[in-house]
Structure formats: C-alpha cells, structure tokens
Amino acid sequence: MIIEYIAAFFFIGGFFFLAVGVIGLLRLPDVYTRMHAMGKCDTLGAGMVLFGLMLLIFDVTNITKLILILVMIATINPIITHLIAKTAYNRGTPMAEGSFLINDYVASQRRRRRRKLQEVAIEEGDETGQ
C-alpha cells in the first residue's frame, strides 16, 4: 500500500516536469533555449514516470525491459539535443535579441578560408605578372 503512494509521488513529479518542458517550448524565445527545455525536462520527466512504473509492476522481466527503455531514452536524448544544436549553429539560425557569442567558430573558420584564398590569388597574380 505504501508503495502505491511512492509511485504516485513519482508519477506526479514526472508529469510536472513534462508539463514544464512544454511550457518552456511554448514561451522561450529561441531555438537553442527551446532545445534546452526539451532536453532536460523530457529526460527527467520520462525517468520519473518510468521509475514509478517499475515500482508498480515489480516483475523481473518487465523491469528489465523498462530499464532498457530508460537507458535508451537517457542515451538518445542528449544525442538528439547535440545534433539539433550543431545543425542550428551551422545553418546560421538567428538567436534571440540581446544574446551574443564569445567564440564564433564558424565565422572565424570562414574568415580564415577567405584570407587563405586571397593570399593564393595574390601569389598567382604576382607569378603571372612577372
């Protein structure tokens, strides 16, 4: 009987975190911040709901399958978050107003490539000029 109350606590906590993730998805101003809400709240809410189900079911085979799903979600969600961030940054998705980058890697690489192209063009021009 007491285990049902513990499971109910985990269910309510998991639903709270899933709802907070959806509120963050609706109200945050940017792709990157929305992705932050998705990654953290989704993993934590799914983990708490799965833990409550493990307490309720209490069978070795099914608990093993639930642990497998939990490990799968906890592995997949950071991979997806990382890939979405990388894709958004490489595509140049605009950030919210007032945010800035400290070390803009893509822009510095582009600048370096352009400088190298200019140097090659100047050298070739000199050779053809002589």
Partner: peptide
C-alpha cells in the same frame, strides 16, 4: 528545427 523539437516532445 522548432518543429523537430516539438515532435521529439
């Protein structure tokens, strides 16, 4: 990418 994030949730 917003749509991708929403579909993931």
């Amino acid at each position: 990418l917003d749509r991708v994030v929403a579909i993931n949730i």
